[in-house]
Design a protein around this nucleic acid. Structure first.
Lengths: 205, 205, 205, 205
DNA sequence: AATGAATGAGTATTCATTCAT
DNA sequence: CATGAATGAATACTCATTCAT
């Protein structure tokens, strides 16, 4: 009896499992997802799954890590290396990146965090350290660069980079809850960005 | 004389139970809250709880209803009857109201909705109809009044009342997730409101 | 506020309750019938029901007693007072009586006894003493009268009066189980009776 | 060395469980039997039981199937292959088979069917199709063979094979209810068979 | 390494019975 | 007498985790 021609290499297993887990969590949420289901989706036995992830919770954390880290890395790298002015970067790459978030896997992660956060403080901490905190820092840095360039005047926004991410989070949450209801999230994000840029470029208020 | 084992207080029971349920849901989330726990907190037997609420789900819905409706009612009533100008209302009663939301029971409801929403579409619908939709309509109305008064010029904000609630939702979510991390939600909300008012009062952009 | 014109006399209550209970038991069986349901059908509060019947089991027994006794009484009385010959009685009143049993309330009682009997030995005993035993004795007596009259010869049937009731019990059980399937129970009962009479009248076997 | 906590015996489990379930049902009836009890009797965890049988109801059906089918199969096979005359077969193998039924597991199944039938119509249907209907057909066939052989004349019995099973059903029910009371079921069954054979062999009635 | 049979603690819901009013 | 609100014991079913094979 010949071996199957393509035998899955064991190095890929964890990835395949977290991918399957993400899909399941996205559909049903953490609590409602059964480990059997994840194993089946991953084409793996339950026993093997437990070989890679000690508990369902570990699996959950691995999913969050693997989904979110790459994106943030990409964004910060792009800010650090860009040659665009601050305004150009905001209107260009940043806006592009940010408009993709509502409806993306990231929004699922946010749902999971909100739902399960109270029971997984270390996960929330991880998310804060690696995503939110870094994201805010990166934006602050970008705005400071704008001030340094003379593009922007210093304003309240420099101390509240949250104003920049705000429409994204809002859009994500809105979409999560009211998929049915239409909200032009692109326009919302753009409008807020316009408001902020106008304010930052405007005469002293 | 110890409290009697049987106490007939038909009128108050539902309230007492939903109050207890809210407390429990707030602490542990819906799924992790045991019906026994709610009954115990309410000082009531499990059987009685089921006399008033057919299922745990029904109880959940009742909690949401009883917590949220009154607040929205109060706000819309206040807008309809106020004699303040639009700007005065926004800076006064509206701001006061809205600053109280992050950290209030409402934010718990939002967490519950985000977490359990996918499994309770009718609850989400109820929330949309009675809270979000009405809230947005009320704000739109207020802004229109401002335009009619000549206080504001017509702008993108008239079509995107979401910009006004946005910082509230953001603050709620932020507080839900990162209680530890400090965010001056009051300031965030105020700043966004200033931005918007300035924009609406400003020269044509 | 005037009293209702027809106030139910308390003497009738137990009857009304057992009637309601019978209806409920007949539909759903003993275990599946809730006491609330019986109380509601009887137009009485649950508390009052428990005033008359200490437990659900007591109620069950009362139902069986009240339904079955009158019928047996009627049959034995009729045998004792008849002026018909044994054969005439069998072909006449007995056959009429017996053909009515399948599908009648009695068959419900039998179902209840079979289903719940193991848990209510005293009830079964009661039924044996008052119904089956008396019924068999009555039939034996009738057959003996026939032998004494010279209508019948003595045969195995005299020692096995069960042969006479047999088709009735069979029909009852058959109808209970296979309502759907057609069985001409009247014909079955008649045929068996013919067989027996022929045998009892026949030449010595 | 004590028995290991985990034992893998996939093949035998269903059998062991249905056997345990039968014993429990026989003692207490369906409703009064707890699933825990069945699991304990089978020396198996509750969880495993649910691995093989989706619900308690499924388990019940499996019990009925596994107990009853083999017996009917044996009887019909034996009729189809016998070289005995119809009368010989009735007096021999048939009588032997049938006398064993009262008090056998089959009678328990009948109790369960009568008690739970109304709530499990499909089970009753199954029983009708596979047991009663087939049984009656087999007997009809046997009697027809007798007529064809010239052993029997055609009579009402040909259209009412129920007359042949009747004493068995009666005996089963009688034993179920009145174990205490003595009834010589063997004699009852034999007597009825004699009656029928005499009638079928007798001169035209 | 890989499987999936086996475990058992955990939980929503029902319903006979009691008792304050 | 009469009510029905209140009790709490009882039970089917689930699912994360373990381990014999």
């Amino acid at each position: 009896m010949p071996k199957p021609r393509f035998q899955r290499r064991k190095e890929d297993r964890p990835q395949e499992i977290t991918a399957a887990a993400f899909a399941a969590f996205a559909e049903k949420g953490y609590a409602a997802t059964r480990v059997d289901e994840v194993a089946k989706r991953a084409g793996v036995s339950k026993g093997l799954l437990y070989l890679y992830f000690k508990t369902k919770e570990e699996l959950f954390k691995a999913v969050v890590r693997s989904l979110v880290m790459p994106r943030v890395d990409a964004l910060t790298a792009s800010i650090d290396t860009t040659e665009l002015s601050a305004e150009e970067f905001l209107r260009g790459p940043f806006l592009d990146f940010v408009k993709k978030l509502p409806g993306s896997p990231v929004s699922v992660v946010i749902r999971l965090l909100i739902a399960e956060g109270p029971k997984h403080p270390d996960l929330v901490q991880f998310y804060w350290d690696n995503v939110v905190s870094r994201g805010l820092a990166t934006i602050t840095e970008l705005l400071e660069r704008g001030v340094a360039n003379g593009e922007f005047r210093r304003s309240a926004v420099n101390d509240m980079p949250h104003l920049v991410i705000m429409p994204v989070v809002f859009s994500v949450v809105f979409k999560l809850l009211f998929e049915e209801q239409t909200l032009d999230t692109d326009k919302l994000i753009e409008t807020q960005l316009e408001l902020l840029i106008a304010h930052m470029k405007g005469a002293a208020s």
